[in-house]
């Protein structure tokens, strides 16, 4: 190591070496790490984390938190439709953020909607992560014609806008289920599956490229060669040696992609190919509310829109921070 770099040690290397086993050690290491340190020092990141956490709590505990159940058609009363927020002249305390055209409480709809958005977001990020990491690892590790094939595929997909790819996949899958009625899926589940598949399949490229790049670097490192000399099976080398060492950048992408997936879902729902209005996501709420924007009932679209914007912003800020915190060059 060159002298000049000496005083900025690798993450955690200043930590007092202790032989604490298991979870306690892991927890200790985390709170002792530079990542935690940089988190504590950034108020914006703490704010973003708090907001994200709030959405998660809302998503998990939605049914207990929300004042009404917007999915229960029996409880809806058309007389309650389009009531403005509580603080306005015609507002009612029952509906803090007002109601939509069907008389649903907007606050409750947003809480349930975030739940839908986050579930679809997470599932699709997970799907693209698995596909992207797998293909990226194989591409970088095996190289040659397989690498060329996977990367050309990625480039072809990249040359189309992601939303177009999602729409295409969406259409194909819906078409498939229509011609194969033996699957017998109900509308809502189908909508979920279609959304996750189309968003997930349209976003794997970034993971694949990043993982391939890191794999190319790691593959030539001596610890990988040492494993080859021992005679470890290449698949095991990929899984046990290389994968853990390429996950850092993947986590960063995953965070940012979560925001992107939520937006894509909203866009697809807004375009009418997403979840049906009976179980609205944030995107569906915005679309429905859009019709009333110019007739004065602004709250029907503005509140879901703001909820989406805040969620996406918070997750993005977290992703940006994570990228910087894990990047040794910026530390």
């Amino acid at each position: 190591m060159a002298d000049a770099r000496m005083p900025t040690p690798a993450p955690g290397s200043v930590a007092v070496p202790t032989a604490r086993p298991g979870l306690a050690d892991g927890v200790h290491r985390f709170f002792d790490s530079d990542v935690w340190f940089s988190f504590k020092r950034s108020p914006i990141t703490i704010g973003a984390a708090a907001v994200t956490l709030l959405y998660f709590v809302m998503a998990v505990f939605g049914p207990w938190i929300a004042p009404h159940d917007p999915f229960d058609l029996a409880k809806l009363d058309l007389l309650d439709s389009l009531i403005p927020p509580a603080w306005m002249a015609d507002g009612e305390a029952r509906f803090p953020l007002g109601t939509d055209d069907q008389g649903r409480d907007l606050l409750s709809a947003i809480i349930y909607g975030s739940r839908v958005s986050l579930v679809i977001g997470f599932a699709s990020v997970l799907l693209s992560m698995v596909i992207g990491i797998g293909l990226g690892l194989i591409s970088g590790f095996v190289g040659g014609a397989i690498d060329a094939f996977i990367m050309r595929m990625a480039e072809i997909q990249l040359s189309f806008p992601a939303i177009l790819v999602a729409l295409l996949i969406n259409g194909v899958i819906i078409g498939y289920f229509k011609t194969h009625p033996e699957w017998q899926v109900d509308q809502v589940t189908l909508a979920y599956v279609v959304l996750v598949l189309s968003i997930g399949l349209s976003n794997w490229v970034q993971y694949a490229r990043t993982v391939r790049g890191s794999t190319l670097v790691e593959r030539n490192k001596e610890y990988v060669q040492a494993a080859h000399v021992i005679g470890i099976h290449p698949a095991m080398i990929m899984w046990r040696h290389i994968l853990p060492n390429v996950m850092g950048p993947v986590l960063v992408i995953a965070t940012i992609q979560l925001a992107l997936a939520v937006i894509t879902e909203a866009t697809l729902s807004f375009l009418g190919v997403g979840v049906p209005p009976t179980e609205p996501s944030l995107g569906t709420l915005i679309r429905v509310g859009n019709d009333y924007l110019f007739s004065g009932e602004w709250w029907v679209t503005i509140f879901p829109g703001a909820a989406l914007a805040i969620l996406v912003l918070a997750v993005n800020l977290l992703g940006d921070w994570l990228r910087d915190a894990l990047n040794p060059k910026l530390r």
């Binding site: 060159a2 002298d3 000049a4 000496m6």
Partner: peptide, 21 residues
């Protein structure tokens, strides 16, 4: 040896210490 501070002494003289040094 590496880490003895020899390069940093040189860098200090030419005014090219890398921040935060």
């Amino acid at each position: 040896e590496s880490g003895a501070g020899k390069s940093l002494t040189g860098a200090a003289i030419i005014g090219l210490l890398e921040p935060p040094g």
